[in-house]
């Protein structure tokens, strides 16, 4: 039995799982431990019997006759009924905890998470904050976002291109981000700290670089270090607001703004305002309408030579006010 205590204790110190940092995680660890203990019991029983029979009934000069027993209804009934009952218990327990992910209390903090080939963006619609990812030394795109402890927060997931999955191992929660749909869960962090976030649904070349870090702050830290400061906040009045906005949506990762219109992925934008550009739908004058349409429906009129670059649509992410700022910014690139 000492093995079982070792198992129970070990998981407490994070032998099996990272230390539980949310209510849901505690429920998962409890069920995990229940199944683990049962599995070890059954496994030790089965392997013990197998080993014992294999040795005891090994063929030898003294052991040459085998028993004619070939079935035993009572035994067969028992070893069907007992596992069935245990499995039903496990199902019920698992289902009960699973439903807690979908129950959203009214005071839950709302987070909108948008997955895009290969970075996450976490925004707080009610607090008008948007944390964008920045690449780390090793080339990982890590988004740092902040949540208060002991207060449920709801993650509302969607994706801009392919399937992604927002997995926080410390909270034991995960849900796929599906394009054109909203999926999500509600979870209540219970331990302040910094926990990694991974993309768990394979999404292409840099699937392993799509990371995040959740900072669970105590009540004071939340008031002082997050609400008080302008972390993840973009101040429209700041002089460098427009270029920051341009960077916030990742436009700079594909479009250059410097003179010479260098091509990173898409066409360079320096001095294009008012010019005629050849596109897949004939030549078009670059005016406010065309910029707006290319931001919302990039694939409609693609500048010739840039087919297949597959620029994602920002329809629904860029607010009206931000759209106007971006158009002014591009206009100012002369």
């Amino acid at each position: 039995m000492t093995g079982l205590f070792f198992l129970a204790d070990a998981s407490g110190k994070g032998f099996w799982m990272p230390p539980a940092a949310s209510e849901y995680a505690e429920h998962v660890d409890a069920l995990f431990m229940f199944i683990l203990v049962l599995s070890v019991l059954f496994f030790v029983l089965l392997m013990g019997l197998t080993g014992y029979f294999a040795v005891k009934y090994k063929a030898s000069p003294t052991n040459t006759r085998s028993s004619p027993v070939s079935h035993n209804f009572k035994l067969e009934f028992l070893w069907s009924a007992i596992p069935t009952v245990l499995l039903v218990v496990i199902f019920a327990w698992g289902f009960r905890d699973f439903t807690s992910l979908s129950a959203t209390p009214a005071d839950a903090l709302e987070l909108r998470v948008v997955g895009q080939k290969w970075n996450w963006t976490v925004s707080y619609p009610k607090l008008d904050r948007e944390c964008t990812s920045n690449s780390s030394a090793k080339g990982e795109n890590v988004v740092d976002f902040y949540v208060p402890v002991d207060r449920p927060f709801t993650v509302q997931l969607s994706s801009q291109d392919v399937l992604h999955s927002f997995w926080i191992p410390a909270f034991r929660v995960k849900r796929d981000a599906v394009p054109n749909r909203y999926t999500g869960y509600t979870v209540t962090p219970t331990r302040p700290g910094i926990y990694p976030v991974f993309c768990a649904e394979y999404c292409g070349d840099s699937h392993s670089q799509m990371r995040g870090t959740v900072h669970v702050l105590t009540k004071e830290e939340w008031e002082k270090d997050f609400l008080g400061t302008d972390k993840c906040k973009l101040d429209p009045k700041a002089p460098d607001y427009k270029p920051k906005l341009f960077a916030k949506y990742g436009c700079n990762t594909c479009h250059s703004v410097a003179a010479g219109r260098a091509v990173i992925v898409g066409p360079g934008l320096h001095g294009i305002y008012g010019k005629e550009e050849p596109t897949s739908a004939g030549s078009v004058k670059v005016d406010d309408d065309y910029i707006r349409e290319s931001i919302e429906y990039p694939s409609k009129k693609i500048v010739t030579g840039f087919e297949g670059k597959n620029m994602p649509s920002f329809k629904g992410r860029v607010t009206e006010q931000e759209l106007a700022a971006l158009i002014d910014y591009i206009k100012s690139l002369q």
Binding site: M17, Y24, A25, H27, V28, L31, F32, I35, L36, S39, F42, F43, L87, I90, F91, W93, G94, F95, R96, D97, F98, L101, S165, W167, P169, R172, V173, K174, R175, A200, E201, Y202
Partner: peptide, 17 residues
Amino acid sequence: LTGIFLGALSVDIHFHD
């Protein structure tokens, strides 16, 4: 036996993928 962990809904949320 490990299939049972993955069959239980709440635990699979953590273990999936």
